[in-house]
Design a protein around this nucleic acid. Structure first.
Length: 421
RNA sequence: GGGGAGGUGGCAGAGUGGUCAAUCGCAGCAGGCUGUAAACCUGCCGCCCUAGCGGCUACGGAGGUUCGAACCCUCCCCUCCCCA
């Protein structure tokens, strides 16, 4: 099997240029995907791109992850209805550094003969002079054509309009392709389906300047069965950075995937082979209540992003939590399990704590009033016990090993409070 | 520059002098059913507490009228529409 067929059966090819398939089958290519450094961490929305790079490498191509340290200074107007705030160079640089670390988990930089590379387009973009840019790049673009691009058209028709800065964005991104083509012979750019316009702009530029025929391939937009935005939960974005989204939460995100999405996601986000995925789907269809597909998905993706140790820990924690074995856990077990869940230290108080205040300190409610309502709705458990009296006090004597409170809200959300001293 | 409409809780959108902390919907939270799913049913959904027909803060901002204002008046700020 080749790269293109692999992506095809996984449902990862949304669109590709003529000849991309042949080129990929014929020879080993250099191909790149750009990552936007507007935040200090990537989130699950970028996972597909990361997986695509890894597939490239597996099939003998040389993947290049371009972190947009230069383009990030401008801001992509695609999919945006309003002008974006510009990040400072320092912010962008810090973001680039942490994103680089996250990408590193998916790529092999030592592999021969097709090592992965990570480059920052600030390297060339910040050195480009305005005159050079206008003569060598701008000359190849027709404003007439640019005005018809969807991302630009929407903004022109909208009320806010578009600044010259964002209007020029696609030229900069196109220039990346040219630069990578010159430097390392890169002939393919991949991206999300929203990047099609930017990718073809790059292809055109390369062709006009060098005469070479290069290719583009875009991945589908991920949808959820309920129509919600993928990668968001009640709690917010699912980040890849463990300090923003704990491995436990990350694991839980995948375990809670809708039945109807699980099979697709196994194809999208794991490297499991076709027969194995189909087998999992059959098992899942037979015993949906066991959530085979979700579990497998959670295991695989968590391992990929956070490593095997964190994955196992998150899995063990989930087991304890959902089997209601909290009260019987030992000190070391608690610390281990909650390392991936979330915890905080509270100062010792001789008279104990009011129950609502404990819930607030665990970050499970934003005000005592809200906590009180939760308690009355029979939603709060402390150390595995349902507590329904909002006036109750909890003292150190109630704590596990005199030290810990596991505060649980609803069925899924929990937090460890540790008494100081 | 001229004329008009409007700014209400995360969104959307009622209310136009008292019982409005503010209808309904969406989103969100919880409970039930289940499988840590979907759908569905129920409750909650400004803050504080001694939890009450309690206190406080709120309907763009600042003043004013009134026993009483989201609702009336004045000024200011902002948004949208039409004309020039």
């Amino acid at each position: 099997m080749d790269f293109f067929s692999e992506l095809t059966w996984r449902g990862l090819v949304y669109d590709a240029t003529e000849g991309a398939r042949d080129a990929l089958a014929r020879e080993s290519l250099s191909a790149y995907i750009g990552f936007d450094p507007t935040a200090s961490s990537l989130h699950v929305g970028s996972l597909l791109q990361m997986v695509a790079l890894a597939h490239l490498q597996r099939y003998g191509h040389s993947p290049i992850a371009v972190v947009g340290g230069g383009t990030g200074l401008i801001g992509d107007p695609s999919g945006k209805t309003t002008e974006r705030a510009l990040l400072t160079p320092e912010q962008v640089e810090a973001n680039v550094a942490s994103i680089r670390a996250q990408l590193a988990r998916f790529l092999d930089f030592e592999r021969q003969p097709n090592p992965a590379r990570i480059v920052n387009n600030a390297e060339w973009l910040t050195r480009l002079s305005a005159i050079e840019f206008m003569r060598d790049v701008g000359k190849h673009f027709s404003v007439n054509a640019m005005l018809t691009k969807d991302s630009v058209k929407r903004r022109l028709e909208g009320e806010e309009g578009i600044s010259y800065t964002e209007f020029s964005y696609s030229l900069l991104q196109a220039y990346d392709f040219l630069e990578l083509h010159r430097r390392v012979g890169c002939t393919l750019q991949l991206g999300g389906s929203d990047q099609w316009g930017n990718i073809t702009a790059g292809m055109d530029l390369v062709r006009r300047v060098t005469g070479a025929k290069v290719h583009g391939l875009v991945l589908p937009l991920i949808t959820t069965a309920t129509g919600a935005k993928f990668g968001k939960t009640e709690a917010g974005t699912i980040w890849l950075d463990p300090s923003r989204t704990s491995p436990y939460e990350f694991y839980q995100f995948w375990v809670n995937v809708d039945d109807r999405d699980a099979g697709r996601y196994l194809r999208f986000f794991t490297f499991l082979e076709r027969a194995r995925i189909e087998e999992i789907e059959q098992t899942a269809a037979r015993e949906p209540e066991k959530r085979h597909a979700q579990r497998e998905l959670a295991r695989e993706v968590t391992r990929l992003v956070h490593g095997a140790d964190e994955m196992e820990q998150a899995e063990r924690a989930a087991e304890k939590v959902f089997k209601g074995e909290i009260a019987s856990m030992s000190r070391s077990e608690l610390l281990q399990v909650f390392a991936s869940v979330g915890s905080a230290v509270i100062p010792r108080q001789a008279e104990g704590w009011r129950l609502p205040s404990l819930v607030v300190q665990a970050g499970l409610a934003t005000s005592a009033g809200e906590a009180t309502r939760l308690i009355r709705q029979r939603a709060v458990h402390v150390n595995g016990r349902l507590l329904t009296d909002e006036k109750a006090r909890v003292t150190a004597a109630d704590a596990i090993e005199g030290e810990f409170f596991v505060v649980k809200k609803g069925k899924k959300e929990l937090f460890l409070l540790r008494i100081e001293g």
